[in-house]
Design a binder for these strands. Structure first.
Lengths: 216, 216
DNA sequence: ATGCGGATTAAACAACTGTTTAAATGATGC
DNA sequence: GCATCATTTAAACAGTTGTTTAATCCGCAT
């Protein structure tokens, strides 16, 4: 599918520029000419290396995932041996820090936020390969906190409550910055936010757990 | 600013069509011709009644708010007399139901989700007039649960945790539908979700409150 | 009827979109 | 040196965009 493995320098530059533009402005608002001028290549290069703007978008998406895996290799899986509380703290902290990253990781988070809010065909792939495994991990983890008496749907709701507390800082960032900038004004503030989300969640799960299982 | 108050039928039809298109597809992806054909009016009408696509967007945004206020008049303010727990439950339930509405309310929610994730100049107006008052209300409400010993920034983090649990069902709806559709598959499921979010939050706040105030 | 003014229309406008073309470039093996 | 090939380039393409124009329509007071 790709030509000789000489340099592919042009291709990579397009990919990186595309990632930045798509993450920052979205698919529709990003023009092929923007990408190419930012990458310093000719307009026709996009259709030469990738066959269309849309397929470039898809490749930028998987490229984005590769970059993340390169920096956070196994990460979550390594926590299998830790006690439940530490696993929960690690999950929340990792998720929030990724979402708040200002570098390449942040581009990935922005791109994913767009994909989640307004999915293309690529979302199904992302959900199945990346998100569902982590979701399943939480499904096995949460009964350690709240007990086994809960409806499966309620367990899922708890999981969404955990994730939702983190996602808001990315998906509603402009709102957060206006209403309470102190919560994300510095790395320390973000660390504190992660800790508060963890404590909030732990308190909730622990308290709900003492009820030995409510029902639907 | 508006002409004679005869019918303004055309203007209203454009406004409604614009709201639907902007909510469904976003500002950039929506074309003036789409709006006009959906409204059954001439293309030039947009520039005649509103002077540009962008100012039509702004008017559609305030129109959207008017529609919401028409259906949920004072709502939140009426709860001043209720006990804190009921106020919290009412807030969460109202927020989630608005976010999940499938009618006009839902269009408003979609539009707001777009505006929050990718703000235009209109967001500042929306934040100050609509969101900040509700945020302040929560700022006064939360100490009833967790006590007064908390850092102001931590109180704000609690508030974001509350809101985040609700927002995820709108902002990450495509993801939720793929990972755990049961949490929002029916009105009953959504009601249950609201209840779980409330219980989750109440448990968290109550538990954190027993610590008589942690610190930063 | 007549003329006035807002409302509506079809048509055109210029700018921009993604994509294609065909020629030029440049390295590589012979 | 020459032919071959992928690569790069400027230019053009056809379609769409928001907006403007100028003509037409229509209700209504005169």
């Amino acid at each position: 599918m790709s030509q000789l493995d000489e340099q592919d320098l042009t291709r990579d530059r397009i990919l990186q520029a595309a990632l930045e533009s798509f993450a920052e402005r979205g698919f529709k608002a990003t023009t092929v000419r923007d990408i190419c001028s930012q990458a310093g290549v000719n307009v026709a290069s996009v259709n030469y290396y990738f066959r269309s703007k849309e397929s470039l978008y898809k490749e930028a998406l998987v490229y984005s995932f590769k970059e993340v895996d390169r920096k956070y290799p196994p990460a979550v899986l390594a926590s299998e041996l830790l006690p439940p509380e530490d696993r929960l703290r690690l999950f929340i902290r990792t998720l929030l820090l990724r979402l708040m990253d200002n570098g390449q990781l942040g581009l990935h988070a922005k791109l994913m936020a767009r994909e989640i809010a307004e999915p293309t065909a690529a979302l199904d792939y992302v959900v199945e390969t990346v998100m569902r495994p982590r979701f399943e991990m939480l499904r096995t983890l949460l009964p350690d906190f709240v007990g086994d008496g809960w409806d499966a749907a309620d367990i899922d709701r708890f999981i969404l409550s955990l994730i939702g507390q983190c996602l808001i800082y990315r998906h509603a960032r402009p709102m957060v910055e206006r209403l309470c900038p102190e919560t994300m004004s510095s790395p320390d503030a973000i660390n504190r936010t992660a800790e508060v989300i963890f404590e909030f969640s732990l308190a909730a799960l622990g308290q709900l757990g003492t009820g030995i299982g409510q029902r639907t």
